[in-house]
């Protein structure tokens, strides 16, 4: 049974240009999804809609059969979905622990350690960590929020190959071992190959490969 359902989504920019038209998709827990698409195809826009950062012009997004607007997007973002960005989006005056604690519903230190951060690193200012370490902190923040859906927008875009592989494995594990629904937006075929289901966004339409 799907945890998240996207029904007949339509989205257009303010200038009237349509970017998404009649998008339908279902996402299940315990699986990792990859959404592929060329630059400007609307991948990030779709992720923003699924993440409750914006509202579609038409259609609806259902979380466990309930429209996410029902309880409000703030509630949805706080309780049901976590976002991981390409640029990490960490709070620059906080340590990894403090960043992870922002929306944490469980103890963050074991999660950070499991993701490979040392005791010394977790107390350092996040801006003094490497890109890979910062992305691990972002993933730790998403995992510690303990939401059933994790959305990742080009999570390996700024990372070297080894680190990227490591991050992909963490996301896969999160889906398979922690029963999360992981949706990754990427233009990397290598990353997409690791996903359980690959979807492609083309000319405003989403279809399974």
């Amino acid at each position: 049974m799907s945890i998240l359902e996207v029904k007949e989504i339509l989205y257009a920019y303010k200038n009237g240009k349509s970017i998404l038209s009649n998008i339908n998709a279902e996402f299940e827990a315990g699986k990792m999804y990859a959404i592929l698409g060329a630059s400007g195809s609307g991948k990030t826009t779709l992720l923003s809609l699924i993440g409750g950062l914006d509202v579609p012009k038409k259609g609806e997004i259902l979380f466990e059969q309930e429209n996410i607007l029902q309880r409000g997007l703030e509630y949805y973002r706080c309780n049901h979905v976590s976002l991981i960005f390409q640029s990490y989006n960490l709070i620059d005056y906080m340590t990894p622990i403090e960043n992870a604690e922002l929306t944490a519903k469980k103890d963050v230190l074991p999660i950070l350690e499991r993701l490979g951060l040392t005791c010394e690193e977790v107390k350092r200012n996040v801006m003094k960590l490497s890109g890979g370490q910062q992305q691990r902190v972002a993933i730790a923040r998403a995992l510690s929020a303990d939401t059933p859906i994790i959305l990742a927008d080009e999570p390996t875009g700024n990372l070297d190959e080894d680190t990227a592989v490591s991050i992909i494995n963490i996301l896969k594990e999160s889906a398979h071992k922690l029963n999360k629904c992981v949706i990754v937006v990427t233009h990397s075929n290598e990353l997409a190959a690791q996903a359980d289901i690959v979807l492609k966004l083309e000319r405003g339409n989403l279809h399974t490969i």
Partner: peptide
């Protein structure tokens, strides 16, 4: 930037 992050995390 900071405000955006907080909002994306679901902080009211």
């Amino acid at each position: 930037h900071e405000t955006g992050i907080f909002l994306s995390l679901g902080i009211a």
